[in-house]
Design a protein around this nucleic acid. Structure first.
Length: 312
DNA sequence: AACTAAGTCAACCGCTGGTTG
DNA sequence: CCAACCAGCGGTTGACTTAGT
């Protein structure tokens, strides 16, 4: 059949030979790829530009990390997939050296099965069977934050439970903060998990001004209300802010007349601070449910896991 | 050794959205 | 506004490998 971009010429298909790889690498390292459709001719390859592009991106790029996925990478994929769904290219951005194709294949061949074996629906991350209520150890009341740190990717995940007296409203907060210096953009998926059954929209405000959904932020289908495996409801926000953000304030509305400020999360950009001391402060300001309180988190390093203890 | 089923993963396909003339 | 072109994406395919019989 062949696709339109190469229907006019005779093109080779299937696996790439080492000779073809060499030609492509030599051409791109010398001249860059420029317009992909012109690459095959210039590089002396009987392939279509699309095939060349794919081969370079998925296999020949020098910055690719080969080999098996680490447990840390697996955790990252699961965490980000829970927020973004099958957006493989977005997920791959959180895994330096990995391609969307690689992540997708790993998901389909390994992670999916593992989740099913754990009784979880890989699409929704919910329990497959309601009768089996999964009571994870982390669901007990605790004031400890566990930070899964990946110093290579400048990304981290926070999973915490507020102290007892707050559990009526919040069962936990999960914050995923991802930053890429190279693209000078900040991707900050934020996910709030609440035991409060009332649905409310979330606005994100940076330290200077309020960003409306229609402007820089999109509340898309991925940002809709979900349920996690413990039956609590998740509220998630995926933001793409092109300037460094010193502070993000999550503001919630109950959907009624009154507005409740649910969380004030101060997230300093981590950047080079990964692995070194830094502070991560947040407070709950909604006095209707939660007395104002600030938690200062001190950081200690335990191998690649960082544990933050909340100090009231 | 031969066959088959299951698993893996590179590559392809079709679509979408952005850009350009 | 429209068509053509392009890059990029997610779903799917199929060649190859591995495990089991």
């Amino acid at each position: 059949m062949g696709h339109h971009c190469c229907s006019k010429q005779k093109v080779k298909r299937g696996l790439w030979s080492p000779e073809e790889d060499e030609k492509l690498v030599r051409h791109i390292t010398t001249y860059g790829h420029g317009c992909w459709s012109s690459v095959p001719k210039l590089a002396g390859l009987q392939r279509c530009g699309k095939s060349c592009r794919l081969r370079w991106i998925n296999y020949l790029r020098p910055d690719l990390k080969r080999g098996s996925f680490t447990e840390q990478e697996e955790r990252t994929i699961i965490d980000v997939h829970r927020i973004l769904g099958n957006r493989w290219a977005q997920i791959a951005k959180h895994l330096p050296g990995r391609t969307d194709n690689e992540v997708k294949n790993f998901w389909n061949s390994c992670i999916k099965k593992k989740l099913i074996a754990q009784g979880l629906d890989p699409n929704t991350h919910n329990l497959l069977s309601k009768s089996k209520s999964l009571k994870s150890s982390s669901s007990s009341s605790s004031s400890k934050l566990i930070i899964n740190n990946n110093s290579n990717s400048n990304s981290f995940t926070v999973d915490t439970q507020p102290p007892d007296h707050h559990q009526s409203l919040l069962s936990n907060i999960i914050i995923n903060h991802h930053n890429s210096r190279e693209t000078s953009s900040t991707t900050t998926p934020l996910m709030l998990s609440s035991s409060n059954s009332s649905a409310f929209p979330i606005n994100v405000i940076n330290d200077n001004n309020c960003i409306n959904w229609g402007d820089h932020l999109a509340l898309d289908q991925q940002s809709q209300l979900l349920q996690n495996s413990c039956g609590t409801q998740l509220y998630k926000v995926d933001t793409h802010i092109n300037t460094p953000v010193d502070q993000l304030i999550l503001q919630s509305s109950s959907g009624h007349d009154d507005q409740h400020q649910m969380g004030n999360i101060d997230t300093p950009l981590i950047d080079d601070a990964m692995g070194s001391n830094c502070h991560f402060d947040f407070e709950f300001l909604d006095s209707a449910f939660i007395p104002p309180q600030t938690y200062n988190c001190s950081l200690t390093s335990i191998d690649d896991q960082l544990a933050w203890d909340i100090v009231n």
